[in-house]
Design a protein around this nucleic acid. Structure first.
Lengths: 344, 344
DNA sequence: ACGAAGATTGTTAGCGCTAACAAACGGCAT
DNA sequence: ATGCCGTTTGTTAGCGCTAACAATCTTCGT
């Protein structure tokens, strides 16, 4: 109708334009677009040709309005600058794309309950069909658990307390592996440089460490604590370097281990000859630390992928047949920063 | 109308429901929602109360359909696992949020023209109002330039060849600073560990290095080349360690510098006493390398933020008054990995 | 050759919202 | 009181698409 109003309209073509050009009804165009059955090949070809000729693009808002499906999923992430969250996001996005969804992200600086709730609401208002929350802190875990959300939601993080589907890594197990390895190496005990108290992953790793120590009958030393950053690891390292009895340290993540390594180096304490160090994460740089870092690898990408699969299953399956709590096993990667205890 | 069909409908409330409850027309509800003038405070309050009572959420698809605005922007990123892209994405998202937009991401593994074009198309089909392309490779830069896109588009990357608005860091300048610093320190010349040839940033940094060397009358040694990874830096380092005449190396990024540091250490070449090393990026870990890395800081977050501002200006300004090519100045950060040349 | 059962296409009615216009309501100058 | 103007509200049309159903055309058995 508008094609002839001024003659040179250059409005985006709509389905009706395609229909007219192909000599069919708009519904038939819709059928072709959606792969509906019962369209004569000949007709389909004409429609397709018309679509190409006009460079027609379906309007997603109109489709979303009537189908009530936006093809969009939301991700609430925490500081997506960090390697972990960034990798998970990446995994999520890839998996989403291959499942036919778009991903809308929103990155939080703080993970208190209100922020998470707000972010989820915003996303939901935008029409996402489901949400993945990258929720490592305990506060956010409980926030997620409390979420009065009307969208399907999956959490990636650590822990099993929340009442939402969640995929996480076996932090206790990984910490146990690392600690056990050091004990096997002959260390009398293993010190621990932990992450922030209010992070679930930090708690789990600490617990894994403690339990393993106890099971082996080793004394459980005081925990040093950092905030995940290399800087905090360095500061903790300064303290640890002064403790002559320390021969092995398990760090809750690689960044802190890096800082620790640096502090130890400055203090003239040789790694691994005097002190063994093990990290957690296996960031890509870990193999090039001085010395190369023995660490516990976790596959963040896989984590994200699984979370997304869970969400999609919930979205499309309807039936909640799939397990609602998933744990991915981490893996100890041996490098040079941990060696046998040597008594001098 | 549906509230009484089966009695216990639990369909999401729509504007009409709110209108009925507040005793006004749906248009008035719309007016309240959109802050239109000429609504009696009393009426507004009643509408607001009804909205709260029903927990009404406007349907964004319906709004997008009629307003032709989706409130969504797209980001095409390259391997958002890397620190740079991840930080830019983060900056973009934050800026977008505060400007009232959502961000839909799609992360590419390869940045050839077809992939970029496809990604932009996908995004556009989804209804984004504009797109930011994080486009560091030359192939993608030209791809972007060629993009037959009907959405406003801004690129973040390096270079000024493309015909699209772009924000980038002063790679030549930064490389010059680093190289100049080493020359000032008394080094006869500076070697260069470059990035992949087809990356624009790599080319620019190399050019900055070369020009500075030439300007100072220094010999320009053969370039070593890596692929940005610590691993490739390590391998290049193995080669460099054998070259006795090398006293200073400028690395095109921090990760390669890390690998180089490790190789040098293994080869027993002291940094900075025997060889000085400077990186580029200033990733958070750089300060904790052994030794702490002197490097050129670039503010990725700021880059993303600026790109988004440019896009929003284009979107909302209409008038293309703002400069269409922006460059952010990097900054040399002095740490311990670079020191005076010492002749022994 | 006739009707039933598919196959294929068209028609109609919204999805939930905003834009545009129309109507109703007040206040105030005359 | 009368009419004019600005304020406040309501009514009517779509936005571009899909769902549901109606209409038409084939094909085939008998």
């Amino acid at each position: 109708m508008a094609t002839d109003s001024t003659g040179t309209e250059q409005r985006q073509p709509v389905m009706a334009d395609v229909a007219k050009l192909a000599g069919v009804s708009h519904q038939t165009v819709s059928r072709v677009l959606n792969g509906a059955p019962h369209v004569k090949p000949d007709t389909r070809d004409r429609v397709l040709a018309a679509i190409r000729e006009l460079d027609y693009r379906p309007n997603s808002a109109a489709r979303a309005l009537v189908t009530r499906r936006s093809q969009a999923l939301g991700v609430v992430s925490f500081d997506s600058t960090l390697y972990g969250p960034a990798s998970m996001l990446d995994g999520i996005e890839r998996a989403a794309r291959s499942a036919g969804y778009f991903v809308t992200v929103t990155s939080l600086r703080s993970l208190d309950g209100r922020s998470v709730q707000e972010a989820v609401d915003r996303l939901r208002d935008q029409g996402v069909e489901g949400v993945v929350v990258i929720a490592p802190q305990t506060s956010s875990v409980s926030a997620v658990a409390r979420l009065s959300s009307s969208v399907p939601l999956v959490a990636v993080g650590s822990g099993d307390q929340a009442r939402v589907p969640m995929v996480s890594v076996g932090n206790r197990y990984g910490a146990g592996e690392a600690t056990g390895h050091l004990i096997d190496l002959g260390h009398r005990t293993v010190h621990h440089l932990a992450g922030p108290v209010n992070w679930r992953e930090s708690q789990d790793r600490e617990e894994g460490w403690r339990l393993t120590l106890q099971a082996a009958g080793c004394p459980v030393p005081e925990v040093e604590r950092g905030d995940w950053s290399a800087r905090s690891g360095y500061q903790a390292g300064l303290r640890i370097a002064r403790l002559r009895e320390v021969t092995a340290v398990f760090c809750a993540n690689d960044h802190m281990a890096l800082g620790l390594l640096r502090a130890l180096h400055e203090a003239g304490r040789a790694v691994p000859d005097e002190i063994s160090v093990i990290g957690f994460d296996d960031i890509p740089e870990a193999a090039y630390f001085t010395p190369p870092l023995t660490t516990v690898r976790q596959d963040f990408g896989e984590l994200g992928r699984r979370a997304l699969e869970l969400l999609v299953a919930e979205l499309e399956g309807g039936a909640h047949s799939s397990p609602t709590q998933l744990e991915i096993g981490p893996e100890l990667v041996l490098r040079r920063s941990a060696g046998p205890a040597v008594r001098r």
